[in-house]
């Protein structure tokens, strides 16, 4: 990747010193005039990756659309923690209908805006992985196929967290959930075929598909901004660690998201019209074990008996991503190194 011009990294982190940048290169969140689309006072858990991701994504969308945004939300944590009647944390026009229909409702909003000639107003659909990968999958595919003018954002925390951490189609293999318990000879979730929604979105050849994480919020802002440059169906898949569901420390949300990318388990890339056009290189490659160890949902892989067989299979999945998206490509690494200047 990527489109962001900023490459000023502090040592050991991706934090960007906005103070040192010209005004127009600073992050959306550093802007005193930002929308605060999802404002404070909501009821998300401490360290919630979804709340963090949604705030950055929506504020970036609001800046890109000059404040002309309508958001449609699927049922789930984001909806529940943001709008306990009579309160609302949304400072933008916002509609929640059902669990499985957010993409179709967003289509309806876009159709109404088109009929009324308000095409300056942009539509965002959003939901968790359950709403996106499972129950709303048909509606999402329909929205993609028709190329409706909607940016759909999936905040993926890899299970049904709102109902108490049950397995979803996005739950990774071996992960413990309330419906894939760490018991029996093959503890945790099965090694299925997986359901890679960014790739499924790409198969629809929609104008723009991207992945991001809450470890690189500047990248998330840039992806949203880029997505808003297109018309038609766009898809953004954001990895958002969930301290409650993953059994991780609240203070580790960003760290775990970073380890997901640096291990190769979660590739960060962009695709246009069905083709990958950029991926974010791994800077400091780590074995998957470093990512797994911080999360209680994988603790059965380390005690009482270490399960190297399972860890190896997860490592193989990470290795496959690294190859598929050229995350460690030598030439690419060199260019990235050059770009990063400060190093």
């Amino acid at each position: 990747m990527t489109t962001t011009p900023v490459k000023f990294y502090q040592v050991g982190s991706f934090a960007v010193g906005n103070r040192l940048l010209p005004q127009d290169q600073r992050s959306v969140q550093s802007d005193m005039e930002r929308t605060n689309a999802l404002t404070s006072g909501h009821r998300a858990c401490q360290g919630c990756g979804e709340a963090l991701g949604a705030r950055y994504a929506l504020d970036a969308a609001m800046r890109a659309a000059d404040g002309q945004v309508i958001a449609v939300n699927a049922t789930g944590c984001l909806e529940v923690f943001s709008t306990p009647y009579p309160e609302s944390s949304w400072r933008i026009a916002w509609l929640h209908s059902l669990f499985g229909n957010a993409p179709a409702v967003a289509t309806g909003v876009a159709a109404a805006l088109k009929a009324k000639g308000h095409t300056e107003v942009r539509v965002i659909g959003q939901g968790g992985d359950g709403a996106t990968v499972d129950i709303g999958f048909g509606a999402l595919s329909g929205m993609f196929e028709r190329n409706d003018d909607v940016l759909y954002i999936c905040y993926d925390n890899e299970a049904y967290m709102n109902t108490g951490v049950q397995r979803s189609g996005a739950t990774p293999p071996a992960a413990r959930t309330a419906t894939t318990q760490a018991v029996g000879p093959q503890p945790g979730n099965v090694f299925g075929q997986g359901k890679n929604l960014p790739r499924i979105a790409m198969a629809h050849e929609i104008p723009y598909v991207a992945t991001a994480t809450v470890a690189d919020l500047r990248d998330l802002e840039a992806k949203v901004t880029r997505a808003m440059e297109f018309r038609g169906a766009r898809y953004l898949h954001v990895l958002v660690p969930c301290p409650l569901g993953w059994g991780s420390a609240s203070c580790d949300t960003v760290k775990i998201a970073r380890l997901a990318t640096q291990s190769g388990l979660f590739p960060v890339f962009e695709a246009e019209h069905g083709e990958v056009v950029a991926s974010t290189p791994i800077r400091h490659r780590v074995p998957v074990e470093e990512y797994l160890k911080l999360q209680a949902r994988y603790s059965h892989l380390f005690s009482p008996k270490r399960r190297d067989d399972v860890i190896d299979k997860l490592q193989a999945a990470a290795d496959r991503n690294i190859k598929r998206y050229a995350l460690l490509d030598e030439v690419r690494r060199y260019e990235a190194f050059e770009d990063e200047g400060a190093l």
């Binding site: 289509t107 309806g108 329909g142």
Partner: peptide
């Protein structure tokens, strides 16, 4: 792509 989507599109459109 389905009646569930039909009523959902209608909901979004009507709310707009």
């Amino acid at each position: 792509e389905s009646e569930f989507a039909a009523m959902s599109v209608a909901i979004g459109a009507s709310a707009t």
